[in-house]
Design a protein around this nucleic acid. Structure first.
Lengths: 188, 188
DNA sequence: CTACGACTGTAGCAGTCGCTACAATCGGGC
DNA sequence: GCCCGATTGTAGCGACTGCTACAGTCGTAG
């Protein structure tokens, strides 16, 4: 029996914080439970199982990163929009959200549930938020829709590869180049 | 005591095939060993440990995908180069190589070895191969270097997100858009 | 023949995993 | 007082993990 209680939501929020810090791959219930002041027994009381907990955590994490994008002030141009979005995506909290998203996507690469479904849903809402921001920055809805597919892919790829790159300056140039390329493509 | 014997290389190749099929995350020695006709005991005789085996497998997988790029005939333009590279990267074997690469990168997101080192090394050689192909297609070395950073990121992102997308036509349009954007950026 | 190094099978260690059976505790409505 | 449902602790299950100790079996070199 699993219901939506205040305690469940509280545990879900705490678990999300923990996962954002420690990563999703290799997550196990006992260390998580200990860290947030409960027991594995309790997690399995409030959630139907590990998958249920993970799906809940992923949704909360996604909510936070989408919220961070929606809270951004309007950008002056498509180019600055890309830079603003990247800055927002790599600020402390959102950065961890995207890291977890990437882990979930990797876990879903072979079709394993619940990862595939949750990641698909998360991606839809994330892409939507990106597109809205581009439109607000002045490009048409149609161009934004197509540009965002590229932007999203590039962001995820950078999230995956940039941690390998020790050169801060190189990273900055890549993001700047990306902004140029997207601006040219979106026509803004 | 671990040496470079023929048997070790044979096992490494077989293990690579298995990992390409079954994924890297959650890999465990016993099922792998059984599938390739040996025992976990033997794997640990020929390799220093699971990490050694995984690093070896990742290097072989990367060799194969880089080889696939280098074997491509020269492309007519930057735009067709991007399309050719994407087609090569998503053909059966290379597709699995990149899936495994993404898994390894995800496993390295928090700094865990041996993933970080191996993925960094793999990425360098992969980006190099991409750049060479772009240069052969007619853009300057300098523009190719910068375009490849974007191209690589976009490829990895697409590898991560596109499995979620059930619409073949949508995927094709995204790749075509990417080719346009990269061609415009690289000036070819 | 012997000795040695290369290789392999058996069995098991100590640890972790998700999950569950069972019982206890607690607060509130009858 | 008394029960009932919600919540929690204890203890443990069976399966799995990477890894290792030990005892072999080979082919070959001396």
């Amino acid at each position: 029996m699993v219901r939506n209680t205040a305690r469940r939501e509280e545990l879900a929020a705490l678990a999300t914080d923990y996962v954002l810090d420690h990563g999703l791959i290799g997550l196990s219930l006992r260390p998580l439970a200990a860290a947030i002041g409960t027991s594995d027994r309790m997690l399995l009381y409030h959630f139907a199982g590990k998958d249920d907990l993970v799906a809940t955590v992923l949704r909360i994490s996604n909510d936070r990163s989408v919220e961070a994008v929606r809270a951004l002030p309007r950008s002056q141009s498509v180019r600055t929009a890309v830079l603003d979005l990247w800055r927002a995506s790599t600020s402390d909290e959102s950065d961890h959200c995207h890291r977890v998203y990437v882990e979930a996507a990797a876990l879903g690469l072979l079709g394993r549930e619940p990862y595939v479904s949750v990641v698909r849903e998360a991606n839809e809402r994330w892409v939507e938020a990106l597109a809205d921001h581009l439109v607000a920055a002045g490009c048409t809805r149609e161009r934004a829709g197509r540009a965002v597919a590229l932007l999203d892919a590039a962001f995820m790829g950078l999230q995956l590869d940039l941690p390998l790159d020790p050169h801060e300056s190189h990273r900055k140039r890549v993001v700047s180049d990306l902004a140029d390329a997207i601006a040219a493509f979106a026509g803004g």
